[in-house]
């Protein structure tokens, strides 16, 4: 059965796609900051608050320590990258559904919606790096020159990982709306199974295999090593890119398979 639609709209050169992404990111930023007084502070406040809570609960009450680092500093290093990951993937399921009117009425590559929301979250993450820097200085430590190649390298790895995952859950959620709740639960579980509030070194050796199987653990660990020690660990970066490529491929395949029917179902 011939089901192929041969539609030839105006060509979409890269320059146009860049403009489209730019305009959508700008919109998100403006909307987010327009009617709130504290704007930037809010995007930092949330992870900071949780850092304080974890420090009180685990560091003070349970007297948990990470060898070699002040615990609050260690928490900060993992908390901000995690926040980006959690908000991008957690927002994924609703990304297409919230833009239903656009998907129904305008013809444009729909994955651009995900690109722009993840890019917005990435910008928020970059804005938190000065906070990490301040905390680092507070504890008498200094940033490293390795941040200059390291931060862009890890930002790219995380962008690809998070984009792929968000694209997949956003696409599937158009068809099976329950996914939204599952994703929220999954992210919460993944948080405790990823070395964010503890380091790998306090985990008994026989369980290390589980951390190795965790697709986002290398990324978070690479961030911690880079931000705390100024060390860009090639093994962790390699592993992070491996799972980034896997996420990207899976996300793209799922999106390609499902996107032709989005407009009917959102």
């Amino acid at each position: 059965m011939a089901t192929q639609a041969v539609v030839t709209p105006s060509a979409r050169p890269l320059a146009y796609l860049v403009d489209l992404i730019l305009v959508l990111v700008q919109k998100d930023m403006k909307v987010r900051y327009k009617s709130s007084w504290l704007g930037y502070a809010w995007s930092v406040a949330n992870p900071l608050l949780f850092t304080v809570v974890y420090y009180i609960a685990l560091g003070v009450f349970l007297r948990f320590e990470i060898p070699g680092y002040p615990y609050p500093l260690f928490l900060i290093a993992g908390q901000f990258p995690w926040q980006w990951l959690a908000s991008s993937i957690g927002g994924g399921p609703m990304a297409f559904i919230n833009n239903a009117s656009l998907i129904k009425k305008v013809r444009f590559p729909r994955n651009i919606i995900i690109v722009s929301t993840v890019l917005g979250d990435a910008i928020h993450f970059l804005l938190t790096i000065p906070v990490t820097l301040l905390v680092l200085l507070w504890y008498g430590r200094t940033p490293s020159w390795s941040w200059i190649p390291g931060i862009p390298l890890l930002v790219l790895a995380q962008f690809l990982t998070v984009y792929g995952a968000a694209l997949a859950v956003a696409s599937v959620n158009v068809f099976v709306r329950d996914l939204e709740r599952l994703v929220a639960l999954f992210i919460q579980a993944l948080f405790f199974l990823t070395p964010v509030i503890y380091s790998v070194h306090v985990v008994p050796v026989q369980y290390h295999v589980w951390i190795k199987l965790n697709p986002v653990a290398p990324l978070i660990r690479a961030w911690q090593k880079l931000l705390l020690d100024g060390y860009l660990d090639p093994l962790l970066v390699g592993a992070a890119y491996l799972s980034a490529v896997a996420c990207l491929v899976v996300g793209t395949l799922v999106y390609r398979a499902l996107s032709p029917r989005f407009a009917e179902l959102v």
Partner: peptide, 8 residues
């Protein structure tokens, strides 16, 4: 408009 595709 190309927002939906045909079955056949």
């Amino acid at each position: 408009a190309g927002v939906i595709g045909p079955q056949s």
